[in-house]
Amino acid sequence: MMATPILETRSLSVSVPGKSRLPFVKGQTLDILRDVSLDIGRGEIISMVGESGSGKSTFGRTLVGLMNPSGGEILLDGEALPKSQASVRRLRKAAALLFQDPVTSFDPRQRIGSIIAEPRHIAGRGDTGRDAIAELAAKAGLTRNLLERFPHGLSGGQARRAAVARALSVTPRLIIADEPTAGLDLSVQAGVLNLFLDIRDDVGSAFLIITHNLAVARRVSDRVAIMYLGRIVETGPTRDIFAAPRHPYTQALLAAEPAPDPRKRRTEPPVIGETPSLLHRPTGCEFHPRCRFAQDRCRTEAPVETHLSDYHRIRCHTPLAPPASGDG
């Protein structure tokens, strides 16, 4: 029997009012997330992958109460949280968000040591002395002298580590990292990912890594969730997803990953067309206008989530066939 997840969403939806350029025309409602169900276990690392605008960051922000769900529910330790400020406070004690651009999330007038200590002050914890903060910073790979700098005085990698140290200051059980390697050199990316693995092993925190970088997902994840137009279309163990994707969109994403061998040139694009607007969602399966395997049913009937195995789930009327036994 599986242990109770730390955090779980059931049919989570997020809608926001759309804006019109004409002041006398009422904007349409934008459904950013639709029917998103995901569970995150203790010490688990999950990568959420999808194209820009697919709703990944909105999902992460909703988990820490920065956006309000319009439907579905969020469960903490198996208990559904009502919509209230008390629930938001509980979420923020359990989960911490690493923003995509850490420097802009820092107060430019504060030194790094004060920035790291601030969550402890807010939580009413007393261990905010210089030695305690220096020890915390060291866990994130920051030296004591960096604590005296202002945010603009840090490199990209140092700023990411400072953000991690700030998140760790209240010992979160879940860390949500939004594009944690974006804009970093490969060597610095490796250092940040290794830091996540060390934190998972030492502290036991789980991670939800929001990324479009497939190499990152392959490197550190236990499971991968593939998001398209605000829905999770496939989720499963990382090894299974990369070895044998079952959803056509997942297959297209993997096929679009750059190959280091210049001799391996593509003769045709891995996916056709452009991502539809949220204002004009396709009927039926929302991926059908770009899918090479779409059938009449796909154009009219939205697929429900089905279980291919205990841990592998998919939303597709015509899943791709698994590889034949014995195939490499």
Rank of each mutant, 00 (worst) to 15 (best):
L174C: 13
L136Q: 11
R160K: 14
V164W: 00
I175L: 14
A182W: 12
Q158H: 09
L147P: 01
A140M: 02
A140K: 05
V164T: 05
A177I: 04
R173A: 12
A162Q: 12
A132N: 09
R173M: 02
R160I: 09
E135A: 15
G153N: 08
R160N: 10
E179S: 07
A138R: 15
L174S: 05
E135W: 01
S169A: 15
A138F: 02
I176V: 14
R161W: 10
L154C: 06
L168K: 09
R173K: 15
V164E: 05
E135M: 13
D178K: 06
D185H: 12
R173N: 13
K139N: 00
G157R: 02
A159I: 07
P180Y: 08
K139S: 10
G157Y: 05
R161Y: 13
A167N: 12
A134K: 04
T171A: 14
R161S: 09
D178E: 11
T143V: 10
G183Y: 13
V164L: 14
R144Y: 01
F150A: 01
Q158M: 07
P151Y: 01
A134Q: 02
G141N: 12
T181P: 10
E179L: 04
A138W: 08
R160F: 07
A167C: 06
T171K: 14
I176A: 13
D185L: 11
K139V: 03
L154I: 08
R166W: 10
A138D: 14
R149P: 03
P172Y: 07
A134S: 15
D185Q: 10
A163G: 10
R149N: 12
N145F: 01
R166D: 12
L184A: 08
G183F: 11
I133H: 03
T143M: 06
D185W: 13
E148V: 00
L142F: 06
R144I: 02
P180V: 01
N145T: 13
R173T: 01
L142S: 03
A163R: 10
E179C: 04
A162M: 06
L184G: 09
R160T: 04
A132Q: 15
R166A: 13
R149A: 07
I133R: 02
A177P: 04
A167Y: 03
P151A: 04
R161K: 05
G183A: 05
L136D: 04
I175W: 06
E148G: 05
G156M: 10
R160Y: 12
G141I: 05
A159E: 11
D178V: 05
I176M: 02
R149E: 00
I133W: 06
L174I: 15
A134R: 06
Q158A: 11
D185F: 10
L184Q: 02
I175E: 09
G157W: 00
S155L: 11
R166S: 10
G141T: 09
S155W: 11
E148S: 14
G183K: 11
V164K: 09
G157P: 13
G141C: 11
D178Y: 01
V170D: 05
